[in-house]
Amino acid sequence: MTVVAVVAYVLLSIGALCTLVRLVIGPSLADRVVATDLLLVLVICAVGVNAVHVGRSDYLDVMVVVGVVGFLGTVTVARFIEKRGA
């Protein structure tokens, strides 16, 4: 199980790195907010991998909170883009 967890973390990290690249390059605000949303989903996935690895449920609250807060952030920035442009 440790091997599985390590491989999963590595895969998630590479995905997160690619997303960070997009976050920096842009070119628009819309690209960046989509990248942020995906980054938060990857964080939730990482907490899930931890739950699979350890077999305990200590950090599940983090998943729920990050999911909801990530959504709120995405919607807020989307409304901002609508009013002020990307």
């Binding site: 599985v4 999963a8 995905g15 690619c18 997303t19 995906l38 991998v49």
Partner: peptide, 13 residues
């Protein structure tokens, strides 16, 4: 978990 993480990588790519 491995397949899920691979899909997350695909999303990043």
């Amino acid at each position: 978990t491995l397949v899920g993480a691979a899909l997350a990588l695909v999303a990043g790519v």
